[in-house]
Each structure stands twice: as structure tokens, then as C-alpha cells.
Design a protein around this nucleic acid. Sequence first.
DNA 1: CGTTACCTGAAA
DNA 2: TTTCAGGTAACG
Length: 287
Amino acid sequence: MPELPEVETVRRQLQPLIAGRRITRFTVMPGAERLLRGRSTSEINAQLIGCAFTTVGRRGKYLALHLDNDQVVVVHLRMTGSLRFRTSDHEEESFTRAVFDLDGGDQLRFVDVRKFGTIDFVDQLSEALPELGPEPLSDHFTPEALWYALRGRQQPLKAALLDQRNIAGIGNIYADEALFLARLNPEAPAGSLRPPERRLLHATIRQVLEDGVRHGGASFRDYTDVDGSEGEQQYFVRVFRRTDEPCDECGTTIRRIVVGGRATHFCPKCQPVRQRTRMVKSTRPKQ
DNA sequence: CGTTACCTGAAA
DNA sequence: TTTCAGGTAACG
């Protein structure tokens, strides 16, 4: 569920809440042992107890909770995960899967209906991360960097944006929104973009992600922030889950199709299938 | 490359 | 009852 803006919202909230707080215990609820990936609770507790959280970082959709012994707790929320910061006497949320008890009596809770989320305990952040493309809100993400990720690819644009190896952090909501604002058809081959289209898509990717962060993320279903509140970005989307509603720009009925196995929403008039979809380069240069 | 699996609940 | 879901990894 959570994409870059949702994860960034959690990061910003969590940092001041847990910085300096020591872990007194880590517990995994029955049925959620998968989270530990084969390690035992006692093994993890041996490493964690007495350590304090320092800073909270983010890479793509991954959260990195750094500890003062240089270990890192790496969290991925996948579809339905959320982190809650609560006092220990606060009623336990349904589907709580794991709990960090902190000194002073607060808790950091990992809540996840579908149990897809992951928590890794590593010495180096990189150990827990797969290959990831550039951070779209960083200075490294330029129109040239976008083109480097897309050039030579025959893959539909939508699928290319969702591939975390190309760009880190874009998910289903923001891919649809960025393509709508750039007036690009989600099925157009990624490698067919002309220079002006590349510049525009680069700008709209940044715009939708920044808007998402500014509105505290999008809560269509399960996403909530650290105290359980919803984001506001769902009120500002132009196409995502607006199937059969009129397009804001032209009134045409928004369509839903499946691209790369994911529901995809677009305006057929604003985002037409281009006639010239010839690839800019016929093959992807060997690295 | 597209499809399936991982889980579980909400909505159609 | 069936379909769908802010994600990814594994499959063919």
C-alpha cells in the first residue's frame, strides 16, 4: 500500500518520537513468525535490548531505523503494513504483528493485516535492500537519469515506473497520477519518449510525489500514519480509482485497464495512444 | 516479458 | 460468492 510519500510521512513522524529511546523488548505475535525469517526472538532480543534508536532514514519504500550500535532495523510495509507509536496502555490494534517496547513505557507497533510486510535486522542497510534506482526527490534524479532508466525498454511506461530497479519509491497511485499529468499513455513503450516528454514526465513524477508528501500520503484503504490518522492525498488524485468518472480536464470517462498485472487508470483522450511509438534506440546499451 | 503466489478482509 | 487490494519475488 504505502509508496514513497506514505513511507516518507511515517519517517518524518517517527524520527523525533523514537530518537534516543532504548529498546527494552522485541515481541512477535503468534502466527507472525515469518517476520523473523528463521531467526529466534531471543536471538534478536539479545542484539536489540539496551540499544537506542538514533535516526530514521528512507530508501525508496524502505524505512531504516538506525540504532546506536550501528545496527539497522529495516522495515518494508508492503501492502497493508503500518507502524504505530503508542503508549503501552493504549489498546492493541487488530493485526498487530510485532512490538518494540521502549524505555519510558511507549511502544512501536508493527500492524499488518496481510502479513506481507518485512522487518530485517542488519549491520549495513545495503544488506537488506535489493537493487534500487535513484531517489526521485533527490538531486540525482534528473531528466537524464529518468531517461537512463527508460531508454531501450520495450516495456509499457507504467510497468517501467513501477520497477524499483528503475526508480525507487513509485507505486500504483503515483505512477498513474504522474502519467496523467504528463499526458502519456500507460501502455506506450518506455523507450519511445521524445526529449520533451522525458522532461515533462520527470517533472510530473516529482510533482505527484511532493504533493503526496505535502498531504501526508494517500489513504485509500489501509494506510495510516504513526498515530493512526489518514492522509489527504486521496482527495487530490486525478485518475487513480476514478474509473467511470469524468476526467477533470476534458470530461471523458476515465478508464481502468490492467498493465503489468496492475490496475491502471487513465483518460483515453488526454493520454492517447501515440501514433509514433518508435523506439528512440532499438536496443538497450550493454552495461 | 506476463502470470502466480504470498495473506486477509472489505466491497461488489 | 467473487473480486479486488498503495508490493514484490518467483515462476514459465
